[in-house]
Amino acid sequence: MTATSSTPVSLRGVTKRYRSLAALDDVDLDLGPGITGLLGPNGAGKTTMLRVMATVLRPDAGEVRLLGRDPSQPDARTEVRRRLGYQPQELGFPRGFSAFAFVNYMAVLKEWADRGTRTTEVRRVLDLVGLGDVAAKRISRLSGGQRRRVALAQALLGTPELLVLDEPTTGLDPEQRASLRGVLADIAATSTMVISTHQTEDVAALCRRVVVLDAGRVHFDGTVPDLVSLAAGRVWMAAGPDAEAQASWRTASGRYRNVGEHVPNGAELVEPSLEDAYLLLRGATSTSSDDATTSAEVA
């Protein structure tokens, strides 16, 4: 992908190390409007990348540009933050705050000075994430999924141009997740959104683009159909597990879904899903050399 001056998110040679561990290793990435999904195993560098994009973490090396600005410059960073919404992975809330009070508090930090308009906006975002009826409840009494939505609500204040969401659908039930997808899809129509998730179905439902990270490096960068197509002709339903498959699991029907190059005996070729493709890619990246990159553009 080619970066332009209007690319909302641009990373060039971005590296971040925690002692000897490279959380991000020389990452180049340009993200445009719409929703981009970040997939990868635990420790792949997804959260580190999102924290860099959220301006709360400075990389050790490389160049970051967000909304056309350099966040290493204090004034530019403040300007970026005015147009940024961030939901971190690890949620922390002040003790004793209600959902409304916390989002209201964050609204003040986001320069919503006028009390009346701030109240209206806080109410809007809480309604948007389905917390309108528990707004006055203390956060400590909310469920895990509701707490996550409180954090999401503060990220949505002012409908930011850049939304960085770390596992926004974790802890939500299927109905809440479906509803939230609708909300996020609406917002993404006018903004750039980056989502980290372990839920491939969220990526399949929401994202126009998917980036797979592993060991701090980009192993795939393309559209969801591009990623799914990697598994075309490599997903088989069989009576039993295939020892040579890269991934194999028992389905509800009692048959086994085998993902890999090898064709199991008596197997039936089936349509691949995003999860199949991701597992295939994970298998490929974990056994390939470190500098291997699978990209829709390269492939």
Partner: peptide, 20 residues
């Protein structure tokens, strides 16, 4: 211990953290 339970969310806001 970390500067506040919501520091990461506070840090992403434009309000100057040092002032806070």
């Amino acid at each position: 211990p970390e500067g506040g339970p919501a520091l990461e969310q506070e840090s992403s806001a434009p309000y100057p953290l040092a002032r806070l």
